[in-house]
Amino acid sequence: MRFSRVVGPRRSEVVTAQDPVPADHQVLVEVLACGVCTSDIGPWRTHDPAAEPVRLGHEMVGRVAATGRHAGQWRPGDLVTGLGGDGFATMALMDANAVLPVPPGVEPALAIGEPVADLEEALSRTGIRPGDKVAVVGLGFMGLGLVQLARRHAPGLLIGVDPDPARRERALALGCDLAFAPDDVPVEFRSDSGRATEARPSIVLEATGVTPGLRTAGSMVRPFGTLCVVGYHHTGDAMMDMDLWYKAVTVVNGFCPDRTRLVAAMRDALGLIAERRFSYAPLITHRFGLDQVDEAFGAMEEAGPGFVKGVVLL
């Protein structure tokens, strides 16, 4: 097998090793596609060259090559996606109970289960109902995915917020009714408007991963509404506006540490992909080879107007 590993700040190398052997409850998967995730950019940026190399990549789709003794539900040749690690490789081990079949006819790069499972699980805890006014703050990969998932619940109004005009255009194409830059959100949708609260969203989904995004999201949610923090706040202190307390807002932590819940959400999300009610096609904008992992993270870091999500193809 061949795999990429990080050996220094912003520097990876591809090496060769023996194919791993699956344990009793594992499957060995020939990786076909692996998404490049924001949660991995920290180790890629800062890895100490004196430390052991690290392997990244956990958003995998692949073909089963071998199974452990107690993984008999899978057969060589099955196309699967699921929860795993060390995915920037030609071969990877995955927990047999944390993978699911890819819907027939779906390209591997458009069937990555883990990210959409994260979004669907978070959204499921907001209590979203038909007719609700919903806002998505942050229209990168996660936010645009949330736009698609929220749209299927028939919201009465779906608002997107992002400083990037290209992202706002994408959000409108994917189902937002309105899209604004943070500084241009109309007064009727903000808590400092002094107007009736009914105009404001009852559910606000924060997908920025930065404190200013949290501040914008908090200002938009109406009293007794729900703020779901889906953004990956991986550095510093994410300060919460105490006005949320005075508005009796329910704050939902969009992160889910439970693999059983994530696999259940992944099953639902893959069903949406099969039914063409969710699609990665408008979100996967950049594709890279195994020897281009550094370029993939660099494109994510730069986040130009044409970038939404990168995938490493093998």
Score class of each variant (00 low, 15 high):
R2P: 04
V6N: 12
V7S: 11
V15Q: 08
A17W: 04
Q18I: 05
D24V: 12
V29W: 01
E30L: 09
A33F: 03
C37I: 07
I41E: 11
I41M: 15
I41Y: 07
H47A: 14
D48L: 10
A51R: 13
G57M: 09
G57A: 12
H58E: 07
M60H: 05
H70A: 15
A71F: 10
Q73A: 15
W74G: 01
R75S: 12
G77F: 04
G77V: 13
L79S: 11
L83N: 04
G84W: 03
D86I: 01
G87V: 06
A89V: 00
P101T: 02
P103L: 00
L110W: 11
A117V: 10
E120Q: 13
E121Y: 01
S124R: 02
R125I: 04
P130G: 07
G131P: 11
G138D: 14
G145N: 12
G145F: 00
L146K: 05
Q148H: 06
L149P: 06
P155W: 01
I159E: 06
I159Y: 11
G160C: 05
G160Y: 01
V161K: 00
P163D: 07
D164P: 08
P165M: 08
L172M: 14
L172H: 07
L172R: 15
A173I: 09
D177H: 12
A179Q: 09
A179E: 08
A181M: 09
A181V: 09
V185A: 14
P186N: 11
F189L: 15
S191T: 05
G194E: 14
R195K: 10
A196D: 14
A199Y: 12
A207T: 08
G209F: 04
V210L: 14
T211Q: 13
P212I: 04
R215G: 02
R215F: 03
A217P: 09
S219L: 11
V221K: 00
F224G: 02
F224T: 11
V229A: 13
V230C: 02
T235Y: 06
M239A: 13
M240Q: 15
L244F: 10
V252P: 06
V252L: 02
T260I: 05
R261F: 05
V263A: 09
V263Q: 08
V263G: 00
A264D: 15
A265E: 06
A265W: 09
D268W: 03
I273L: 07
A281F: 05
L283N: 05
H286F: 06
Q292A: 07
Q292M: 05
F297I: 09
M300Q: 04
E301T: 05
A303L: 10
G306P: 02
G306Q: 14
K309S: 06
V311E: 01
L313W: 01
L313K: 06
L314F: 13
